[in-house]
Write a protein that binds this DNA or RNA. Structure first.
Length: 426
DNA sequence: GTTTTACATG
C-alpha cells in the first residue's frame, strides 16, 4: 500500500501544479488529464504511436497542441473515439516521468511556468534528467529563446546534470536560427575539440551556413566531416544539396546527389523533393520529371510536398494542362490536397487567365473542409486584381478580413497601383 | 521499461 501511493499522489499533485502553472488557460486537454490520468490499460506501443503523432506537429501554443490533437484523432479512416481513448489510456499508463516530459513539451511556451515546475521537481527530489532538460532546451531554441536556453543549461550544470552532445547541438541550432553563426561555429569547434560532435552537430552547422548562403563554409564543414571519419548521411547530403541549389550552383547539387547514391546512401522522399524542387527552380522540368520516375521506380511514393513542388514547376513552365492533370490524379490516388497544393494550382490557373477555374478550386477547397489560409486569400485576390475584376476582389478582401486574415505586401501594392490608375477605386 | 538533436512545398 505504502509503496504504491507516493507516485500516484505525486503525479496527482504535479498535475495540479501544472494546471496552476499554466494559469487561466482553460483547456479541455488539462481536463482530460484530470479525468484519465489514473485510469486503466494500454501498451507502450500505443503510447509511442500516439505521442509521436502528437509530437509531429510543431506547437506554438497550448491551444495549437489541442488543435493538433483534434486533427490527429479526426484523421480518416481512423475512428476518432478509439484514438481518443487509446491516447488517454496510454497517458494513464505512462509513469510520472513520461508525464512530466510530455508536460514540458506542451508548456515550454510558458517558459516561466516551466521553470517554476522545474524548481518544484528539484525541490521534491524528482530531478529532471538530461533528456528532460534537452527537450526543454530544444523547444526554447526552436522558438528563438536562446538566452533562456543558455540559462537552463547553467541550471542543469548547477544541478549536476551534465549537458551532452544533444544539449549542445540543440543550442547550436538555436544560434543558427537567430543568425549567430559565429557563436554556433565557436560552440561547434569546442564540441569537435572535446570529440563529442556527431553527425547531427555537423549537419546542423551545415544547415545554418546554407540558410545564410555561406555555401563555401557549408562545404568546408562537409569535407571536414569525412576527415573526422564521420560518414555524411542522407540528411547531410540533402541539406547541402538544397544549399547548393539556393546558392545558384545546380551543377554541384547534382554532383552531390550522384555522389550520395554512389556511396550507398538511398535518397529518401525529402532528398528527391529537394532535387525536384531545385531542378524546377532552374526551369529544368524535364530532369525533374525524370527524377520523379526514378523515385517511383525505387518504390518511393511521392507525397503532397512532392506533388506541390511539381505542380509549381509545371505552372512555372507554362504547362498548366500537365499541372491540372497531376492535380486531378491526386484524388484518384486517394490523396487529399492540402492548402499548399490548392494554392499552387490556383496560382497557376490565374497566371493563365483561367479565372473561373481558379475560383472553382477555391470554392472546392472550402467544400472539402480544407480551409483557405492567408496565402490562399492573397493568391486569389491578386488573381482578380491583376485581371481587374475589382468587384470580385473587393468581395474577397472583405471575406478575408472577416476571417481575420490580412493582405500581404504584393496584394497591397496591386491595390495601390490600381487605385492610382483607376478611378473605380478610392 | 521510457524520454532528447539535423533535410522538403505557397
Amino acid at each position: 500500500m505504502m509503496m504504491k501511493m507516493p507516485w500516484r499522489r505525486k503525479s496527482r499533485s504535479f498535475h495540479l501544479q501544472l494546471q496552476g502553472a499554466i494559469g487561466t488557460i482553460q483547456s479541455p486537454f488539462l481536463f482530460l488529464f484530470t479525468n484519465y490520468f489514473h485510469s486503466s490499460t494500454s501498451t507502450l506501443e500505443d503510447a509511442r504511436f500516439l505521442t509521436n503523432n502528437f509530437k509531429s506537429a510543431s506547437f506554438t501554443h497550448l491551444d495549437d497542441a489541442i488543435a493538433s490533437f483534434n486533427h490527429v484523432i479526426h484523421m480518416n479512416p481512423l475512428p476518432s473515439r478509439v484514438h481518443f481513448n487509446r491516447f488517454l489510456s496510454a497517458l494513464a499508463k505512462m509513469k510520472q516521468y513520461h508525464f512530466l516530459v510530455f508536460a514540458f513539451q506542451t508548456i515550454s511556451d510558458h517558459f516561466r511556468e516551466a521553470l517554476a515546475l522545474l524548481k518544484e521537481m528539484v525541490g521534491r527530489n524528482i530531478s529532471p534528467n538530461v533528456f528532460t532538460f534537452n527537450i526543454l532546451i530544444d523547444t526554447l531554441c526552436k522558438k528563438g529563446l536562446v538566452s533562456n536556453a543558455e540559462n537552463i543549461i547553467k541550471i542543469m550544470i548547477q544541478r549536476g546534470v551534465e549537458p551532452n552532445v544533444v544539449t549542445y547541438s540543440s543550442l547550436m541550432d538555436g544560434y543558427c536560427l537567430c543568425n549567430h553563426m559565429d557563436k554556433a561555429k565557436k560552440l561547434f569547434d569546442l564540441m569537435v575539440t572535446n570529440e563529442i560532435a556527431n553527425i547531427f552537430s555537423y549537419t546542423i552547422l551545415i544547415n545554418g551556413y546554407c540558410k545564410y548562403k555561406m555555401i563555401d563554409d557549408a562545404k568546408d564543414i562537409f569535407v571536414e566531416m569525412s576527415h573526422k571519419g564521420l560518414v555524411p548521411d542522407v540528411v547531410t547530403y540533402s541539406t547541402l544539396i538544397e544549399g547548393m541549389f539556393q546558392a545558384g550552383r545546380p551543377q554541384t547539387a547534382q554532383e552531390l546527389f550522384k555522389d550520395m547514391c554512389s556511396h550507398g546512401q538511398q535518397p529518401n522522399i525529402v532528398t528527391f523533393s529537394i532535387m525536384i524542387n531545385g531542378l524546377c527552380s532552374q526551369g529544368n522540368l524535364d530532369d525533374a520529371l525524370t527524377l520523379l520516375k526514378k523515385m517511383e521506380e525505387s518504390q518511393l511514393k511521392p507525397n503532397l510536398v512532392t506533388y506541390c513542388i511539381l505542380i509549381n514547376g509545371m505552372c512555372k513552365a507554362g504547362k498548366i494542362n500537365d499541372a491540372k492533370e497531376l492535380f486531378s490524379s491526386l484524388f484518384e490516388n486517394g490523396l487529399q490536397p492540402d492548402v499548399y497544393v490548392y494554392s499552387a494550382i490556383m496560382k497557376g490557373l490565374f497566371q493563365q487567365g483561367l479565372m473561373d477555374e481558379a475560383y472553382k478550386v477555391f470554392k472546392d477547397m472550402e467544400k472539402v473542409g480544407c480551409l483557405p489560409n492567408n496565402c490562399c486569400y492573397n493568391i486569389i485576390i491578386q488573381g482578380f486584381l491583376k485581371h481587374e475584376d475589382l468587384p470580385k476582389a473587393s468581395e474577397l478582401i472583405n471575406k478575408m478580413v472577416d476571417k481575420g486574415f490580412s493582405a500581404d505586401v504584393a496584394t497591397m501594392e496591386l491595390v495601390v497601383h490600381l487605385s492610382q490608375n483607376n478611378d473605380l477605386m478610392d
